[in-house]
Simulated assay, not measured.
Amino acid sequence: MIEKIPLWEKVNLTIEEAAEFSNIGQNKISALLKMPRCPFVLYVGKKKLVKRKEFEKFLKESIEL
């Protein structure tokens, strides 16, 4: 039996998980990851992951997206 790790305990999230975690659409998160010097993007080969703690900090400091 595989134990599923809760999203708030993961270090990195997929775009789908970040959308579920933040209640922001996948397209908007993909657009945010394309920003120059995005502080919460992590490239694993061609795959993009979201650094959860940096993403949370970004959302706390943002007024609108």
Rank of each mutant, 00 (worst) to 15 (best):
M1D: 05
M1Q: 07
M1C: 01
I2F: 04
I2A: 07
E3D: 08
E3A: 05
E3R: 13
K4R: 12
K4I: 09
I5Y: 06
I5D: 03
I5P: 00
I5R: 15
P6R: 13
P6I: 07
P6N: 10
L7Q: 03
W8H: 14
K10Y: 01
V11M: 01
N12C: 11
N12M: 08
N12H: 14
L13A: 03
L13R: 09
T14I: 07
T14G: 09
I15M: 04
E16F: 11
E16A: 11
E16G: 06
E16M: 03
E17P: 00
E17K: 03
E17G: 05
A18S: 06
A19L: 00
A19S: 15
A19P: 01
E20F: 00
F21E: 01
F21S: 01
N23C: 11
I24V: 07
I24C: 02
G25E: 14
G25Q: 13
G25K: 13
Q26C: 09
Q26T: 14
N27C: 06
N27G: 08
K28G: 04
K28T: 15
S30Q: 08
S30G: 03
S30N: 09
L32V: 06
L33H: 08
K34G: 01
K34H: 12
K34R: 15
M35V: 03
M35P: 00
P36R: 07
P36M: 09
P36S: 06
R37F: 15
R37P: 00
R37K: 15
C38T: 10
P39C: 13
P39I: 04
F40S: 03
V41T: 15
L42S: 09
Y43N: 13
Y43H: 13
V44C: 08
V44A: 04
G45D: 04
G45N: 06
K46E: 07
K46S: 08
K47R: 15
K47G: 01
K47L: 10
K48A: 05
L49E: 13
L49D: 09
V50A: 07
K51L: 08
R52I: 00
R52Q: 02
R52F: 06
E54W: 03
F55H: 12
F55W: 12
E56K: 12
E56F: 06
K57I: 06
K57Q: 14
K57N: 07
K57F: 04
F58W: 15
L59V: 05
L59N: 09
L59K: 10
K60M: 13
K60P: 01
K60D: 14
K60Q: 15
K60Y: 15
S62V: 05
S62K: 14
S62W: 03
I63Y: 14
E64T: 09
L65S: 04
L65Y: 13
L65H: 03
L65E: 10
